[in-house]
């Protein structure tokens, strides 16, 4: 079994909406890939290339 999380760079719309109906304590087990995708996309921002606009203060970044 490939135990590594799926290497998706982004969370899926289906997974996000389905996980809203999963009890909080079950999310880590039932949606392990989603958590990893969120961790990569939102926390470590793996998908962000150099030169991208800052996440804050869009008015000075657009």
């Amino acid at each position: 079994m490939d135990h590594a999380p799926a290497r998706s760079s982004r969370p899926y719309l289906d997974d996000l909406t389905r996980s809203l109906h999963t009890p909080l304590e079950r999310i880590a087990v039932e949606h392990a890939d989603l958590i990893e995708a969120v961790r990569r996309r939102v926390v470590t921002n793996d998908s962000v290339p150099s030169g991208i606009v800052a996440v804050a203060a869009f008015n000075s970044s657009i």
Binding site: P11, T17, S19, L24
Partner: peptide, 18 residues
């Protein structure tokens, strides 16, 4: 839908924190 996805991301972060 966008608000729901944002809430879901926050719940995933919470689970990651746990």
């Amino acid at each position: 839908l966008l608000a729901a996805t944002q809430l879901s991301i926050t719940r995933a972060l919470l689970a990651a924190g746990r």
